[in-house]
Structures are given as C-alpha cells and as structure tokens.
C-alpha cells in the first residue's frame, strides 16, 4: 500500500488528537466532537463492509459457487432480520426476544463446544510442545487452579493453609503484569509508528 494520503491524514489526525488528549482542559468539547466523527465514520465503514459481504454472497449464489448453500443461509437470515426489524421496530420486545432466542443458544452452544475442545487441548499439550519450563509450569498451574476453582475443598478453617492458598492464587498476577507491560510497550511503539508514518514505508 504505497498510498501517501491516508498516511498523512492518519498522522495529522493522530497528532491533533494526542495533543487534544494532553490539553483536555481546553480541548474537551472539540475532543468529543472528533471522537463522534470517528464513531460515525467507523459505523459507515461497518455498513459498507456488511453491504460488501451481502453482495459477495449474492454473487456466490448467482454463479453457483461450491458451497453456495451457506450463502443462501446468510442472505436469507440477514434479510429476514433486517426486514422484520424495520417493520416491527428495533425496540419491539417480540423482535428483540426473537433475536435473543436464536443468538443466545447458538453462542452458549459454541462456548460449550469450546470447553470440550479445550479439555482435549490440555491433555495433548506435552505431546505437541514437549517438556519445557513453560509447558511444565503451564500444566502444573492449570491442574492447581482447576483443583482450587472446583471448590471441593474449603481451607477457611485452616489458617496456615488458607494463607498459602491465597498467595498461590495471586501468583498468576506476576506473570500477567510482566506480560501486560511488555505488550503495552509493543502496542505503544506500534501506535507511534502509525503516527510517524513508518507503517507504510517499510520495505
């Protein structure tokens, strides 16, 4: 992508917003305005992308692409949801209940399926990744926290054990903090690169 205009626009808008965030006492009303613009533009981008998705699948149906049954399902469910919502109104309780009745069991079923997949994943981790400090500590930690999370044993009545257990439960915070700081530094550099226009000037 060797287009310079988006890079320049990104740099200017980014720097202005950064300055506006820094001097919020003076720029608060303008900051809100620009963020509103961003919300509108990203919403339009989403509408454009959805329109493109539907048009692509209509084309798949027309040309009879392999697996176009999926495209029919997508277009029909999209149009049904859109037309019904337009006719009944977005705030209609029956419409919202209908959407919920379809989406919630689907998402719950997916989460349940993921639980089963995770179980099989955990069993084969040593076969796939071998034995290392990372895999051994991962395995031991998963076993320990699974045992603690199940809550079969209560340690409230034993003061010494209670302290040890509560300390053990705080151990993941150490790794999480180190990882979060590293990831945040990486993200910061990536954000700065976008502002300085380096993102598109790479080889």
């Amino acid at each position: 992508m060797k287009q310079r205009t988006p890079v320049i626009v990104a740099a200017i808008s980014g720097f202005i917003l950064l300055a506006a965030f820094l001097f919020q006492e003076f720029t608060a009303p303008y900051l809100g305005l620009v963020l509103n613009w961003a919300i509108i533009v990203s919403s339009v981008a989403l509408l454009v992308a959805i329109a493109s998705l539907v048009v692509t699948h209509i084309r798949f149906i027309v040309i009879g692409r392999k697996g176009f049954l999926y495209s029919i399902v997508l277009v029909v469910s999209f149009l049904a949801t859109l037309i019904l919502g337009w006719y009944l109104g977005l705030d209609d309780p029956d419409y919202l209940e209908g959407i919920r009745t379809v989406l919630v069991p689907l998402e719950n079923a997916l989460m349940g399926l993921i639980a089963l997949i995770l179980m099989s994943g955990a069993v084969k981790i040593f076969r796939v990744r071998g034995w290392s400090i990372l895999t051994v500590s991962f395995g031991l930690s998963a076993l320990l926290f699974l045992f603690l999370n199940l809550g079969f044993l209560r340690f409230d009545s034993i003061p010494g054990v209670n302290v040890i257990v509560s300390n053990l439960q705080r151990l993941p915070i150490i790794g999480a903090r180190g990882l979060l700081i590293g990831v945040a530094l990486g993200a910061l550099l990536m954000g700065l690169q976008v502002l300085f226009g380096q993102e598109v000037m790479r080889e």
Partner: peptide, 17 residues
Amino acid sequence: FIGITFGAIFVGLFSTG
C-alpha cells in the same frame, strides 16, 4: 511465571466454557 499465568487463564476460560 508466564506458564503459571497462562495455566490460570486457561482454567478460567475452561470454567467459563
């Protein structure tokens, strides 16, 4: 520590599932 954190996150996800 990374292994411990990943293990705990993994169990949290498994419990949610």
